[in-house]
Amino acid sequence: MNEKVKSLISRTLEIPESKINDKTNLVKDLELESLDLVDLVAAFEDEFKVEILDKDIKNLQTVEDIVNYIESRND
């Protein structure tokens, strides 16, 4: 799952996958802004068939957070 998430971030926002690891912070390290975050949330929802709640977006800071969230929503 971690690799799938990294690959999707890389493809969606055209960021080299080598720059993304499990602890990479989307805002602090990759300098993503709101538009990128919403784009990414939509891409995750399409790819993983989950609904990401608006109130949870601010908690999805790293690849690890995203993986844990998607897995918990799929339970």
Binding site: S34, L37, V38, D54, K55, I57, K58
Partner: peptide
């Protein structure tokens, strides 16, 4: 509230 409000709302 930023994105937590939900832009679709």
């Amino acid at each position: 509230m930023g994105l937590s409000y939900g832009l679709k709302n």
